[in-house]
Simulated assay, not measured.
Amino acid sequence: MTVTPSIMPAIERRHFLGVPFDRIAFDDVIRLIGDTRDDPAYRYIVTPNVDHIVRLAQHPELLPYYENAWLTLCDSKPVSMLAKAVPITLPRVTGADLTACLFGLVIRDGDHITMIAPSQNVIDQMRTRFPHLHIRAHVPPYGVLNNPAELQRCVDFAVQEKADFIFVAIGSPQSEKIAYEISKHPEATGICLCIGAALEFMTGMKKRAPRWMSRTGLEWLHRLGSDPGRLWRRYLFSVLPLLGMAVREIPRGWWARLRG
């Protein structure tokens, strides 16, 4: 299958909870990537969720990773729902769904794919599943965010491979930092995506929430149940700050709307 080329409308970028979001629907994102996939210029896509938003409020020095992205897409149903109260429409585009559709609709046999992956097992399973792709991959050590030499090794690897697509799947904010640092290299090429656990979902190493939970904004509950020891603290310290930020911003949005 291929994506039919089309003329895309201008993409509006709005800020919500201190984070830029591009207002573009899922199908239009796929179409845009398909239309521009043969452009050798480097560009990258980030998909902030609740965890990203709260972290950015605490560490604003990370904001350039999102501001300079080609596309910044909302990967959170709760955030998309909260935005409606401003009111702002933020289409939800998850990294997992986006990655799966790209491999099904846009990526072609023979394409060169670079992966900054969480494990060798993920790489092996992706190569088995897609034998007609040229997959080159690097698995950085744990703690790469605080290891400048290893982080630079990720950047250099991605630049040297000259890939059609680059998938950075080692969590946030290290994935976004790598994508941003690649953008500063004059020889960088391809479309880069920061995709969280998308490769692990594709290979079956992690199980996604049922579709009904995703549609209703309860995907976080499924993840918590799947890995409570690791995620309970993250969710506890993300949800309350997010609600506090929303309580402050939503009235300002309505006030600005009334004045305008």
Rank of each mutant, 00 (worst) to 15 (best):
L90K: 09
P91L: 05
V93A: 08
V93E: 05
A96S: 06
D97N: 05
L98H: 03
T99F: 06
C101R: 07
C101L: 07
L102K: 09
G104Q: 09
G104T: 05
G104M: 05
I107T: 11
I107F: 08
D109P: 15
H112L: 11
H112D: 09
H112F: 09
H112R: 15
T114W: 10
T114K: 09
M115W: 07
I116L: 13
P118T: 03
P118A: 04
N121F: 14
N121W: 12
V122Q: 01
V122S: 06
V122W: 01
D124T: 07
D124L: 09
Q125V: 08
Q125A: 12
F130G: 05
P131K: 06
H132D: 13
R136Y: 14
R136D: 12
A137E: 13
A137H: 13
H138D: 06
V139A: 12
V139D: 09
V139C: 14
P140F: 07
P141W: 01
P141K: 03
Y142H: 12
G143C: 05
V144H: 02
V144G: 00
V144I: 07
L145C: 10
L145M: 15
N146D: 13
N147F: 04
P148V: 00
P148K: 00
A149N: 09
L151T: 11
L151E: 11
R153C: 12
R153W: 11
R153E: 12
C154V: 10
V155K: 01
V155E: 01
F157C: 05
F157N: 04
F157R: 05
V159M: 08
Q160A: 15
Q160I: 12
E161R: 13
E161T: 14
E161A: 14
K162E: 14
K162I: 10
A163M: 11
D164A: 14
F165S: 03
I166Y: 04
I166T: 15
V168E: 02
V168P: 02
A169V: 04
A169I: 02
I170H: 01
I170L: 03
G171F: 04
S172T: 05
S172M: 06
Q174L: 00
S175L: 07
E176C: 01
E176T: 00
K177C: 08
A179K: 04
Y180D: 04
E181T: 10
I182F: 09
K184E: 10
H185P: 13
P186Q: 10
E187H: 15
E187P: 12
A188Y: 04
G190M: 09
I191W: 05
C192V: 08
L193D: 03
L193P: 01
C194D: 13
C194R: 08
C194Q: 10
C194Y: 07
A197E: 01
A197R: 00
A198Y: 03
L199T: 03
L199R: 02
L199M: 08
T203E: 02
T203C: 00
T203G: 02
G204P: 06
K206Q: 11
K206R: 13
K206F: 12
K207N: 12
A209H: 00
P210M: 06
P210S: 09
P210F: 07
R211C: 10
R211N: 13
S214T: 15
R215Y: 05
T216V: 12
L218C: 01
